[in-house]
Write a protein that binds this DNA or RNA. Structure first.
Lengths: 334, 334
DNA sequence: ATGAAAGCGCTAACAC
DNA sequence: GTGTTAGCGCTTTCAT
């Protein structure tokens, strides 16, 4: 499987290999004629540069690493899709690695990042907040972009969406339907999104002059089961809410399960809203009103920042827009 | 970011770089003493070989590619997880690429596989049956392992699970609960699994002396919506079945949605069974009885075959075991 | 059992 | 604008 090298292309085009290299890397100062000759030689020979050789010579690998440690399979998959497409568009390739409990010591992290010299790393939550990882990457001089980090915003480029505003708008949606007794299920307090979404909720409630009853704001941990628990508490109350806004879809599904079991009709007897737009949201009946996160776009933006290699300071932070998706699970009370 | 090279290790260990290379590659004919000296030098310098250099010199890349084109996000994610872990265990890294409608021409496929010279490819369904891809890989001399291919079994190594037997056992499970009127929803006929699962179903029915009513065997396409359609037909019948076996979970959920809407109680009025054990299966109420596919294990096995580089002919095919997962959605009729 | 030398295919630095 | 030369860090081949 002898493959074509730059030398053969140079010979065919009647130029030196350096010129071929120039053309391939889109360097300036090459005559149009020469460029054409080289490109046509590339074409006829069906030449593809050898990535390993390139990497060795230029100490760039043309590989971008996506690192995750997240139980939500759909979230990761969408991240991967977004970053993969962005990589492809930029002539890069995507390396995917899970960085779980197993890889924790500094040495292991070093090994992880030294073996393949990726050109840049995309860190998804919750890895984006792991100090040890950030530090190792900085020590190794590997560029990284964080997705939805929760602090140290100055430290490195990042992309995010406005969780607070999204929760605010969802709450307003419920209010606009006529709900005043609105329950809210908080998520895992370790996630930064939890505080933001809760803030958006309370803000909308206050702005509408509605009280946030403490017993209408149970805490879950983003799991289906925790949604069930929270819903049992909420729906067991005498003055139970007419709408429940769960801060993610899994918990919202827990609420729906409990409501079904209690023979509450959805959405007449109870409106339910979620957050994430997980695939399941369209599968349940009624379909779940939720917030669509621009997950794939965030990943793509991260890759783009990485490849553009810094650039202007204002391009180092990218906010992407969410979308309020109204489906059948929310309706006027009564 | 000057990193440590093999030269420095050799100097510290007092040997030549070739000897270091031997130790690192576990080549024979090195004295125990020398090995120890090298390893300790590696340790103290915290040396990591440069993948690009290795790849260039040895024309191996230490990269495994996982290729997919599948709408089921959970399936892919699990595949990725399985192959990633296997890669990590073998000192390889995983490259993930979607090969959708966009990449179709022979030239594009060539480009796709020539740019990064992966050591091997894992082809997931439905890519495992794409002739053009197989051919390009063969032309380029890239080893590949197919997951659950539907034909040309002699052509290359593959891993699979026994869909027919799984469907057979699920049908027997329903029969053992006392069901005799069992509906079956077929999947997309383009998928090889469809015929296999249907065969398992009919076989179990015949073996139990039960008739397979043609109007009890509607076809879907593996989507939730198609499950809804099929269920509407089945449950609208006068002599409707007491149990429905949908050939994947998404369609089973469609059945459950229709049953709920018709105020049928699950599982008393209707037993529902699925196939796949998607995450959703545990989220719905009642939880879905289904078949757990060894998705991650199949991917891991594929990577292992790839890395072991062929070996004995009988190691080129690996069958992995499914698991019948009985949950709340199936029960005796009545 | 170990080492010296010659590349792998490309880019960087410098000539011209 | 274009070419020449010297590596990048490793493995391979062939000596010893």
């Amino acid at each position: 499987m002898k493959s074509i090298t730059i030398k053969e292309v140079a010979d065919l085009a009647g130029v030196s290999i350096k010129t071929v290299s120039r053309v391939l890397n889109r360097e300036p100062h090459v005559r149009k004629n020469t460029v054409d000759a080289v490109l046509s030689a590339v074409e006829t020979l069906n030449y593809r540069p050898n990535l390993a050789a390139r990497a060795l010579a230029s100490s760039r690998s043309y590989l971008i690493g996506l690192y995750y440690d997240n139980e939500s399979i759909g979230y990761i998959a969408e991240m991967q899709y977004g970053s993969m497409v962005a990589c492809r568009n930029q002539g890069r390739h995507l390396l995917v690695e899970q960085l779980g409990g197993a890889v924790t010591s500094r040495d292991e992290l070093h090994a992880q990042f030294s073996l393949v010299r990726i050109d840049g790393a995309v860190l998804t939550p919750p890895l984006c907040d792991r100090q040890d990882i950030l530090q190792v990457l900085e020590e190794l001089g590997i560029a990284y972009v964080r997705i939805a980090p929760s602090d140290q915003f100055e430290r490195a480029p990042y992309v995010y969406m406005d969780d607070r505003l999204a929760a605010f708008e969802m709450t307003q949606h419920l209010q606009s339907l006529g709900h005043t007794r609105i329950g809210f299920i908080r998520g895992d307090s370790a996630h930064s999104a939890t505080a933001l979404r809760y803030a958006g909720f309370t803000e909308a409630m206050q702005q509408a002059g509605l009280t946030v009853q403490p017993h209408w704001v149970p805490s879950g941990n983003f799991s289906f089961r925790s949604g069930v628990g929270a819903a049992e508490r909420l729906l067991g109350l005498e003055d139970r809410p007419t709408a429940i806004f769960a801060s993610n879809d899994d918990m919202a599904l827990g609420v729906m399960a409990v409501a079904n079991r209690m023979h509450l009709r959805l959405p007449q007897d109870l409106s339910v809203a979620g957050f994430d737009d997980a695939p399941i949201a369209q599968v349940v009946w009624p379909q779940l009103t939720t917030i669509r996160q621009p997950v794939a776009q965030m990943a793509a933006a991260a890759v783009e920042i990485l490849i553009s290699g810094g650039g202007a300071a204002d391009s180092l932070v990218r906010r992407l827009d969410f979308e309020l998706v109204v489906r059948g699970s929310t309706a006027p009370p009564g």
